[in-house]
């Protein structure tokens, strides 16, 4: 290979990424499903709010798959005769909002603290790490009870609780990555040129840490969803009449033996959403790792 060989032409990044997504059929389905959930979360509460809260005594615990009824009753009705399908779609709004808010906040705060811990003096770094230890071992249930005792049980406050508990995840990852990347040669090269610390962090280190953090955030989105459901299930999360999927499972629990569908469908919605997030995060891990990318780039002929 001589020095004068022509440079290689590659299609634009977005096209490459979409092409790689198309190669992985499962990830593709997952992405489509998530898109659907996001649509439900965005538009569902607006369009179906009335339907989902209207009580209908004749539809109490109506069994699923009764296609003679309105489509919102296809998955059955709950104990007050409200259509389950409509309620699931409406509940997607709160569920997604809590998870997205918590992931975004913890990502932002955790990454910032992690970067600081990775690029400053030993003392600051130690203080931040000990703080992370304390958060890690602080019982999240206690935190939830405290916050929700002092503040009303709203979506925003639930976001605070969940965000605090997830900060250490991003903090540790960001710190570890920064410690590794700051020793790389291009960072040294920037220092030789006289680049300032903020420039090195934001221009040189952050763009390389970002893909890892986004992959983790996708996975964490699923985790936070489950955590939110658990809190709601224990009765220390969102309070009725607001609904989330976790709360729906909890509400259906007392009718388990007579009307299994009350808990079953919202649980299934949780599983499918977290599964899709996991699939997408798995795909990202491969797609963003140059060493493994060939698995997705291989021509489809041997599939």
């Amino acid at each position: 290979m001589t020095d004068s060989q022509p440079v290689r032409e590659l299609p634009s990044k977005l096209v490459q990424l979409l092409r790689m997504l198309w190669r992985d059929k499962l990830a593709c389905i997952a992405a489509a499903f998530l898109l659907l959930v996001i649509c439900c979360a965005l538009f569902g509460p607006m369009m179906l709010e009335d339907l989902a809260t209207k009580q209908n005594l004749r539809g109490r615990n109506a069994p699923p798959f009764d296609f003679s009824k309105n489509w919102t009753f296809w998955l059955g009705g709950d104990a007050l005769g409200r259509p389950l399908l409509a309620r699931i779609i409406v509940a997607a709004g709160n569920t997604m909002m809590v998870a997205a808010g918590a992931v975004f906040c913890s990502l932002l705060i955790g990454t910032t603290l992690g970067m600081i811990a990775g690029y400053t003096s030993k003392l600051t770094s130690q203080i931040i790490l000990r703080l992370a230890d304390v958060i890690m071992s602080f019982p999240s249930l206690l935190l939830a009870v405290i916050v929700l005792y002092m503040l009303p049980a709203s979506v925003g406050n639930l976001v605070i609780v969940l965000a605090i508990t997830r900060i250490p995840v991003y903090l540790r990852t960001a710190r570890a990555e920064v410690l590794e990347i700051r020793e790389r040669m291009f960072v040294q090269a920037a220092r030789v040129m006289g680049a300032s610390t903020p420039r090195i962090i934001f221009r040189h280190i952050l763009p390389l840490v970002f893909p890892t953090l986004i992959t983790i955030a996708t996975l964490d989105f699923a985790f936070v969803m489950l955590a939110e459901s658990s809190l709601s299930f224990l009765g220390i999360g969102i309070q009725p009449p607001e609904i989330t999927w976790g709360l729906m499972v909890a509400q259906g629990r007392s009718y388990l033996t007579s009307a299994w569908w009350l808990s079953f469908w919202p649980g299934l919605a949780i599983i499918f959403t977290t599964l899709s997030l996991n699939l997408l995060s798995n795909w990202m891990r491969v797609a963003l790792d140059p060493q493994q990318r060939w698995r997705l780039e291989m021509s489809t002929q041997n599939d």
Binding site: F186, A190, V192, M193, H204, P207, L208
Partner: peptide
């Protein structure tokens, strides 16, 4: 030091690693 930086520069061993890939 900042002012003198521009007068002394460095070329590293491995160009793959000394150029920011992004």
């Amino acid at each position: 030091l900042f002012n003198i930086r521009r007068q002394i520069q460095m070329v590293f061993q491995d160009p793959t690693q000394s150029l920011n890939p992004r």
